[in-house]
């Protein structure tokens, strides 16, 4: 059974996971959101058509997304070292987590923004709106419920990725499950981490649904 010492370990690992996931979610949106916007507005016929940029960006995003995360993790070790000074531990994990999530976020944002009716953009253009105004006053606000759901999905993905990073020494619930569950056959630890992960994922999804629902309902 779980004794106090293990419970303490579990709580600490949970905190580490939450810290890694939240930080990399925020950081990946910091870069992924603008990239997603660029992906949309530089597409053919859109408000800042730049076919060349659009193609290159799309290609890079696809290329990054086709590398499995576990390989990505290993490939990025030199870069992680450069940025974080080390490649093990929670802080170091944030580098590959963020980098892996950026292209994912860019695509999620792109999908959300593409759902907006072209007529709304056209109406704003007819009023003399600038590109920036259309982004900040039309695209993002109109897509808000869908963007919020995207954040939830990204966060949930990052929970999974962070567990993988944990296995190669990234800290958090992954590391805990690996050391105690896999190497020492402590099944209870294994199951405890699984339960905590399920609760985390459920919690994030519920929060996302709730927030998105609230925003959408206000407009209904």
């Amino acid at each position: 059974m779980l004794d106090a010492w293990l419970l303490d370990k579990l709580l600490f690992a949970t905190w580490e996971t939450i810290y890694m996931v939240l930080t990399s979610t925020v950081l990946s949106y910091l870069f992924g959101l603008p990239l997603g916007v660029i992906l949309v507005i530089t597409a053919k016929g859109h408000i800042m058509e730049r076919i060349g940029i659009n193609r290159v960006l799309g290609w890079v995003i696809n290329a990054t997304r086709s590398v499995p995360f576990i390989i990505f993790l290993i490939l990025l070790i030199p870069l992680t070292r450069l940025i974080a000074g080390t490649y093990i531990g929670t802080v170091a994990s944030i580098v590959p987590l963020t980098l892996a999530a950026i292209p994912f976020v860019a695509r999620m944002v792109e999908t959300s923004l593409k759902e907006i009716e072209w007529g709304l953009i056209e109406a704003a253009l007819s009023m003399g709106a600038s590109t920036w105004t259309i982004i900040s006053q039309v695209l993002l606000p109109e897509a808000k419920p869908s963007l919020i759901l995207g954040v939830a999905i990204t966060t949930i993905n990052l929970v999974g990725y962070s567990a993988m990073a944990g296995i190669v020494g990234g800290g958090g619930l992954g590391t805990l499950a690996y050391y105690y569950g896999y190497q020492r056959y402590e099944n209870s630890i294994m199951w405890a981490t699984v339960i905590v992960l399920i609760i985390l994922v459920q919690g994030v999804q519920m929060l996302g649904d709730n927030l998105a629902g609230k925003v959408a309902k206000k407009r209904r």
Binding site: G119, L120, A123, S126, M127, A129, Q137, E142
Partner: peptide, 22 residues
Amino acid sequence: ELRTARQKIGMIFQHFNLLSSR
């Protein structure tokens, strides 16, 4: 200049095109 000129040309649409967020 076009943006400024457009401010003085109003337009209405078949499907209204109002912002649902506002």
